[in-house]
Design a binder for these strands. Structure first.
Lengths: 216, 216
DNA sequence: ATAAATTTTTAGTCTAGTCTAAATATTAAT
DNA sequence: ATTAATATTTAGACTAGACTAAAAATTTAT
């Protein structure tokens, strides 16, 4: 499998983890290529049995395609853990490098890395790491925006892994494990007042929609 | 720089670490491609300032090209150390994977890895690891074949890193650091009798030519 | 010093993966 | 139920990096 094919499968997976159908256009947009290019590749992936494809009807991963995709995601997230835990990268620096490392082909490497890292269940952004069979145990996490008033919760992940968001969180001392208490929610702009590190803080809906928490 | 360009520079470097000129044909043979292909790429590398090239006169790395080449070699050897020291690979299993890892682009990654591994000076086969400026400190190692009778020496590297040779060494319990005493040399076939782990062993010239040692 | 052998280069072809522009389907709006 | 807007596919072109076959230069051998 080529690097390009791997990237297509990964993108299809991310656009539809629930395995619904993905449109040519959505895929092209995600990958920053033209729709004609994604059509071409979809045809090829279909011939190789990685996706189901009906003209004009979008594309869905087959079992084989999904396993290939989760294998890439598994590697990506394991490498992110390695970079942060072992090499001292910060959580906003790992993505680019992991995009390269995820394509290294060696199941021994992946499995030994997993063991070396003590079988982590999530990457530095809280995203779950698939096992080698492609199974993903995703906890019942929810976005902070949906949490009801007065609830106590713990930050367990982010929905947006961009540098910009992660650096914002660093500035406000929010990281995985940080306790958050919801005090209030404004009707007007959906902003929230929360208690973080014993300080009252106002949080916009952009932020609360991108923070995963677990109620405690 | 593309992966292919990186591989050309690496091959040129390995064919002439002393920076003598490398022929189109030698390069093609080393890379298992046709001579016409290497001519093409040589032209491109020349335009980009990575090599000096005169038609029919072979090719030589420029300063820039040599730095690029040693950077790849540095990464290759650091990753080999990682695989053996941290992930439990054996020295005959690391090459293929390192061939992939050497192309990962991130100087932060390389330097942090170097630090994480405690600034190793050689890879698992005893080959020196260039520093980030491309400098290589190669000890005055010599092949066992050239050592004089009665000398005591220590195995510090191999000249042939193929699985076959490395597994042969494993079988005879020869590894880096193993003490070898030369007892005798046969005129007929250039084989040697040596003392390894307090056992007399006969060693063919194929083997003694591929073992690097240091006299003690 | 010429002929023969070898090496290197050139010219033209192929595949993967992208693109643009045009044609065709599908979906949404009146 | 047509038309308009949008999405998708097709057709044809481009680049990187490989190839084969043939031409040209260099080296080796007589």
């Amino acid at each position: 499998m080529t690097r390009s094919e791997e990237n297509y499968l990964k993108s299809i997976f991310h656009l539809a983890e629930d395995n619904t159908s993905v449109s040519t256009n959505a895929l092209a947009k995600k990958m920053k290529i033209k729709a004609s290019s994604s059509t071409e590749m979809i045809k090829k992936l279909s011939e190789k049995g990685h996706v189901y494809y009906k003209k004009y009807k979008g594309v869905k991963l087959t079992k084989k395609g999904r396993l290939a995709a989760t294998s890439i995601v598994r590697k990506h997230r394991l490498w992110e853990v390695f970079l942060v835990d072992k090499l001292g990268f910060s959580w906003d620096e790992v993505h680019e490098v992991a995009e390269q490392l995820e394509h290294i082909k060696s199941s021994k490497l992946t499995d030994e890395l997993d063991s070396f890292l003590n079988y982590p269940k999530a990457d530095p952004h809280g995203d779950p790491i698939p096992d080698s069979n492609g199974n993903i145990i995703d906890s019942k996490r929810q976005v902070l925006a949906n949490v009801s008033i007065h609830a106590n919760c713990i930050c367990i992940g982010v929905n947006d892994s961009s540098k910009f968001f992660l650096k914002y969180l660093d500035k406000f001392k929010i990281k995985l494990g940080t306790k958050i208490t919801v005090l209030n929610r404004e009707f007007y702009d959906s902003s929230m007042t929360v208690l973080i590190n014993n300080k009252k803080t106002s949080i916009s809906k952009e932020v609360s929609n991108n923070l995963y928490v677990e109620i405690i």
